Simulated scan of single mutants.
Amino acid sequence: MKIAMIEVIAVSIPFAGGSRSAESAWGGKNAGSADSLLVKVTTEGGIVGWGEAFGFTAIPAVRAAIEQVIAPLCIGLSALNIGSLMLDVQKRLHIFGRSGAIMFGISAIDTALWDILGKVTGQPVHRLLGGAAVSELTCYASLVRYTDPQLLVENVNRALADGFSHLKLHEITVDAVREARNAAGDNVEITLDVNCPWTVRQALDMSAKLRQFNLRWLEEPIWPPENFGGLARLRREGGIPIAAGENVSTLVEFQQMLSAGAVDVVQPSPAKMGGISELQKVFSLAAANATEVMVHSFYDGPGLLASVHASAALGSKDSLVEWRYFDLEAQLYGDAMRPRNGTITVPQGPGLGFDPDADVVRSFRV
């Protein structure tokens, strides 16, 4: 069961035409599409596994890392010896850094190999991870940064009408959070991801203003994101639970974060930090530190599926799945993974459960 080919596929799916949310997605940057980087691994026997690397504007660098550096180390080796192969690749490439494009590429290949393992054994990934006690998981609608209060409220109301009772905002102003809370009411759980904009002092000042909105957590509040001591201080003094982890790349860094007491919620991102092999280790590490895991999954491809399988098998009944809430012209899995009334079904087919729709990939391939 040797790896015969590793193919990198960039997909750019436009926001649905005429959507007002599309016009201000990404905080006014006027991005017209959502860009994903898929990785297709094929064995000599023709079995195909799919993975996803962190994409967006990083796609050119990650593509080059996979095609020119990582893939040549994997071709011709067993697709089923996932742990030993991925460890060997990490060791051989550590000189180039333990994060960024190299780790994103390793993450995608690792997830694809788990997909292959599940298909070979006839088991869904969640069963390979120990089995899922649930058949569906609650989602939170993860909104883009709208900036415009009217658009924000409009999309909060849309998400509530679609059955979501948990929301994530990406706004960075107190007024925007106030508008969202007023629109949602007191019974809707709101989290706030600000993407690392503030010093510790600024974050403390903002927390004092944000406490009134009863946030479930404040996510990635401090620059730089690896300032775990600063996060720990904010957690102690800020009065709002802290979440972070999407910018953490290695198990050692997760250990440092947890040892520092930096977070109430740890958020590993399977398309960034080593794929499913490393993701399962973070769950174990978090359990040993009595810390909740909410997998970061601002994706709609194999990265999303990896998050769902891991959360179902290794998380708790309260685990939430991040659903990237905006309208695209097409979804990589059609309606198969679309939430219903705020919940998403755990795939039961072998491997990740679904392959990306070939027509969608063909139509939107870059």
Rank of each mutant, 00 (worst) to 15 (best):
M5H: 14
I6N: 13
A16Q: 13
S24R: 12
G28A: 02
N30Q: 14
D35K: 15
L37Y: 03
V48T: 14
G51T: 05
F56D: 11
T57Y: 09
A58Y: 14
A65M: 12
E67Y: 01
L77Y: 13
L80A: 03
G83I: 00
G83E: 15
L85V: 08
K91P: 00
S107C: 06
A108R: 06
D110I: 15
A112G: 07
L128C: 10
A133S: 14
D148W: 01
H166I: 02
I172H: 00
V174M: 06
D175L: 04
A180N: 09
N182Q: 14
A183K: 05
A183Q: 05
G185E: 02
N187T: 10
N187I: 01
N187M: 07
E189I: 08
L192S: 07
C196D: 12
P197T: 00
R201N: 15
D205A: 14
S207H: 01
A208R: 15
N214Y: 04
P221T: 00
L231M: 14
G239M: 02
I240T: 03
I240H: 08
I240M: 08
A244F: 02
E246H: 01
V248E: 13
S249D: 06
T250Q: 08
M257N: 10
M257T: 07
S259T: 13
V266M: 05
P270V: 00
P270T: 00
M273K: 04
S277T: 15
L279C: 08
S284T: 09
A286D: 02
A290D: 12
A290L: 09
A290S: 15
E292V: 15
D300V: 12
A310I: 02
A312I: 11
R324Q: 14
L332D: 02
G334W: 03
G342I: 09
V346K: 09
Q348H: 04
P350E: 06
G351I: 03
L352D: 05
D359T: 11
R362I: 03
R362D: 12
S363T: 11
F364A: 03
V366C: 05
